[in-house]
Design a binder for these strands. Sequence first.
DNA 1: TCTGGGGTCCTAGGACCC
DNA 2: TCTGGGGTCCTAGGACCC
Length: 338
Amino acid sequence: MEHARRLVPGAVVVASDHRAYREMSERVFDVLGVFTPTVEPISVDEAFVDIAGLWRHYEHPQAVGAAMRDAIRLATSLPASVGIATSKLLAKMASRDAKPDGLRIVAAGTELAYLHPKPVRSLWGVGEATYARLEELGIATVGDIAAYPRETLVRRLGEAVGRTLWELAHADDQRRVADSAAAARSISVEETYETDLVDLAAMERELLVCADRLAGRLRRGGVVAHTVSLKARYPDFTTVTRSETRRAPMVTSNELFTVACRLLRRTEAQSRGVRLLGIGGEGLVSAAEPRQLDLDGDLWEQIDDAIARIRDRFGADAVGRARLVEPGSQGPDQGSSR
DNA sequence: TCTGGGGTCCTAGGACCC
DNA sequence: TCTGGGGTCCTAGGACCC
């Protein structure tokens, strides 16, 4: 945004509003749920829907897609694009073709004819790096991949990528539509700073902010983390991670903070400075599962819990860490830029 | 062209165990 | 006591996606 503002000094900048996006997203998913229970969210604004069970109610697949688009527009005033096909990959590609506000069908029997002329980059799973490698092999279209010897592709691209791409290029995609989103496997927070952080005290203050945010999200998700990871980006943009796994899972902001500080000392942050810091929780398990708490941990859970309830009721700025108050300021309002 | 934030999965090496 | 094979877990980094 800094760069954009420099280029266009008079630009109107509109802040993002994630609460509104979530609200609209929920309405869209509610609409989809009316059609069928088999709805698998991909992201806040995309989902796979299994419409195989709807053949009784609609004459053509087109009619299902059109009805969904109408219902979404009615409920949210938002345009929606729909791709219909015999597999997830093709439905996804068709929906991309349908954007920004349309409907695209790849009829059964026409899969390969649709797929093979497409550029490799349009396949789900071919990013910048894989694209460059395929280019070196003289592979430009999905059809080229399909014609390439499978074993050679695996040797060049690795087992997982090579095999998957080869199968997808033959329209071999057996993945089913799940009836809900998979449980999160990790939760993380991170922040890029306007100016690089150079001293340890400043870095630790920011880690405390991250630890607080992460603790809140773990708590709301009802999970605890066996592994805590730290992410640091140096001023030259190289990024490193450090992690620590423990038998006893962690949840409290205090635990997350303590581990993150220890991990930070295992990086070169102190000597090089950092542009970004982040903390993540991995190896998530339900907080409802029995686990051993030491007295100290129990106390911090109660503190986090109390803070969460105060924030729910009085707003995010209602309570804060004394440590995060700028020296000389009167309180969190004046002291915090966030 | 200097590049947010939040995720997933894969790979490779090393430790450890049987 | 040594060696080899094979499995799991942990760690770090990279590719990819929205």
